[in-house]
Computed example of a mutant assay.
Amino acid sequence: MGLREEKKQATRAAIADAALGLFLERGFDRVTVADVARLVRVSVNTVFNYFPTKEDLFFDRQDEVARRLPAAIRARADGESAVEAARRAFLAELDRDEATLGLHPGIAPFWRVVEESAALQARLRQMRDRSEEMLAETLRAETDANPDDPLPTIAAAMLTAADSTLHTAIRQKILNGKNPDLVRTEVRALAESTFDALAGGLTSYARKNATKTPAAANPT
């Protein structure tokens, strides 16, 4: 990374950190982009150059979140289905304490800001929809599905719903005052049962290098 890019990354991080501090202190709806700009000593236009909307300031890692499931599917091993890959990826995130799960100590104020803002709730739904669309495109490409084959869209909707449910469970448990370590244990059990349920209907779908069967063909 060159010096120019390093400076841009540093500026972006400074803006995001300052914004989060203000949001946690005042609440999302009571902070303006101008407030953030003044704190970082940059122009409002500079803030918008890095973050197109105020919601982007809060969810500054949303692109990374949206790419999670598609990346897990592309990285699946030979013989591993889409459900198995999604399960493995989620459990691995729990094991390494992935920051975007929102399970680290002191995270409750962050989730409380989300809970109190209709704008942030709407952005969460948009992030989920974007992840589902990206996952459907990935599944269609990975399985060489025909454009009119509904299975990639159906599978993406099911997998995204399961993933979203697990993340919502984390948020609600943290907001209820549970210790992050306890939440991690409870969500692991929930994840296992959730993906077991999905596997019952999608057990062989998108199994890498598997021989295609008539059942997987597009219905006529």
Rank of each mutant, 00 (worst) to 15 (best):
M1E: 12
M1L: 13
L3N: 00
R4K: 08
E5T: 12
E5K: 14
K7A: 07
A10C: 09
T11R: 14
T11Q: 11
A14F: 14
I15K: 07
I15S: 10
A16D: 03
D17I: 03
G21L: 04
L22R: 00
L24Y: 07
E25R: 15
G27Q: 09
D29P: 03
R30H: 03
R30Y: 00
R30F: 00
V31Q: 02
V31W: 04
T32S: 15
D35K: 08
A37E: 02
L39T: 10
R41M: 01
N45V: 06
T46A: 02
V47T: 00
N49Q: 11
Y50M: 08
F51V: 02
F51R: 03
F51A: 04
K54T: 03
D56A: 10
L57C: 00
L57T: 00
R67G: 12
A71P: 00
A72L: 03
R74F: 07
R76F: 10
A77C: 00
D78K: 13
D78T: 13
G79N: 00
G79F: 02
E80W: 02
E84S: 06
E84V: 06
E84N: 02
A86L: 01
E93F: 04
E93D: 11
A99H: 14
A99F: 15
T100Q: 11
L101R: 01
G102K: 01
P109T: 04
P109H: 02
F110T: 05
R112E: 12
V114Y: 01
S117V: 04
A118H: 03
L120A: 06
R123H: 00
Q126K: 12
M127N: 12
M127L: 15
R128M: 12
R128Y: 14
S131R: 10
E132P: 07
E132F: 14
E133V: 13
M134Y: 09
R140E: 12
E142P: 10
T143E: 09
A145H: 12
A145V: 11
P147Q: 08
D149A: 06
A155T: 15
A156H: 13
A156N: 11
A161E: 05
T165P: 00
T165A: 08
H167F: 14
H167G: 09
N179H: 12
P180W: 08
L182R: 11
V183N: 02
T185N: 04
V187A: 06
V187I: 15
L190R: 13
L190P: 08
T194W: 13
F195T: 03
G200V: 14
G200I: 11
G201T: 10
G201V: 13
R207N: 05
A210V: 02
T211C: 07
A215L: 14
A216T: 14
A216E: 15
A216I: 06
P219L: 01
T220W: 11
